[in-house]
């Protein structure tokens, strides 16, 4: 694709140069737009709140400032950020485990077995998967409230583990990569449905497990709305909700509540960085997963 076809029409070279210029400009602007905030964020905790205003925006402060920001952040409500991170890990990984355990067999069954109601289940799954999950948050809150589950870890883990997109990914994966003839052959050989699943399907499922895990983990880790509604106390907050609390304790964004706390802009920037670290790590290795997940179905 790199070479441009040579016998170009009349206007030729000049228009091609203009095009190249426009293309370069668009890409450069996009690059700045996407990356500048990230660079700023990486540098912000190395400066004091004063330096953030007075120094050049993209300058490096000092490691001393970074350490100070860390100390201030840790001393906020007695290392609350570490508790929040632990909570996020418990909620994300806990629901991820349940998601995997339920979605792999479900997707497999939808793709390769036949049972009454299969098509209905598939249609419902597709619909709920496309429907934004936020639409169900308030109804789920009302339900949890009815059953007095508000405030427990389960009130976050269980709703998170309902992940129709995961089921759909598994469904597509098996429907396109596991020929039904293999299963028929195994059935003829007398293998039970359970054996077929364990011995044939499961070993093939590794790539899709990774895919489901990626989407589930990132979604759970970044989720704010549900935990914000159902978890009343700071000790139970995941880090996303904790960040909200930090924001309301930062004087520049909330002069009233911030008095007496050491949480200023650099601390907040550091907290943002820490909170996204796990997702960032996953992201660094997952661009391919994103594409294959979002395009599931069209590839074959």
């Amino acid at each position: 694709m790199t070479t441009v076809h040579s016998p170009a029409p009349r206007s030729g070279r000049a228009s091609r140069t203009a095009t190249a210029l426009v293309v370069t400009l668009v890409l450069a602007l996009l690059l700045v737009f996407f990356i500048l905030p990230v660079i700023w964020l990486l540098l912000a905790p190395t400066k004091t709140a004063g330096e953030l205003i007075s120094d050049a925006p993209l300058s490096f402060g000092s490691f001393h400032n970074l350490a100070a920001a860390w100390d201030h952040l840790i001393s906020f409500q007695g290392a609350a950020i570490l508790v929040w991170l632990k909570n996020s890990a418990v909620y994300s990984v806990g629901s991820l485990a349940i998601t995997i355990l339920t979605s792999i067999p479900a997707g497999y069954a939808l793709a390769l077995t036949r049972f009454r109601g299969r098509k209905l289940l598939l249609m419902i799954t597709l619909t709920v998967m496309i429907m934004p999950s936020a639409a169900l948050v308030l109804p789920i809150f009302l339900e949890l409230n009815l059953f007095h589950l508000i405030g427990t870890a389960w009130s976050v883990i269980l709703p998170f583990s309902f992940f129709p997109f995961g089921v759909y990914l598994v469904y597509i994966y098996f429907a396109t990569s596991l020929p039904r003839s293999i299963l028929s052959a195994a059935r003829l050989d007398g293998a039970s449905e359970w054996q077929i699943f364990l011995k044939i399907a499961l070993p093939l499922a590794r790539p899709v497990v990774a895919l489901v895990a990626f989407f589930s983990f990132v979604g759970n880790w970044n989720n704010f709305f549900l935990p914000y509604l159902v978890l009343p106390s700071s000790d139970a907050f995941p880090v996303q909700v904790g960040l909200n609390q930090l924001l309301t304790s930062t004087p520049s964004f909330n002069p009233v509540a911030g008095a007496g706390l050491n949480i200023t802009s650099p601390e907040l920037a550091l907290a943002i960085l820490i909170s996204i670290l796990p997702v960032l790590v996953v992201f660094l290795f997952s661009q391919r997963a994103l594409v294959s997940g979002m395009l599931a179905g069209s590839t074959k």
């Binding site: 339920t102 067999p105 699943f197």
Partner: peptide, 20 residues
Amino acid sequence: GGLAGYLFVSGYVVLLLAFG
């Protein structure tokens, strides 16, 4: 395959009913 199918989807269906 019917019965096995139901067993395979059961965990997911419970979540679907409970949270959908």
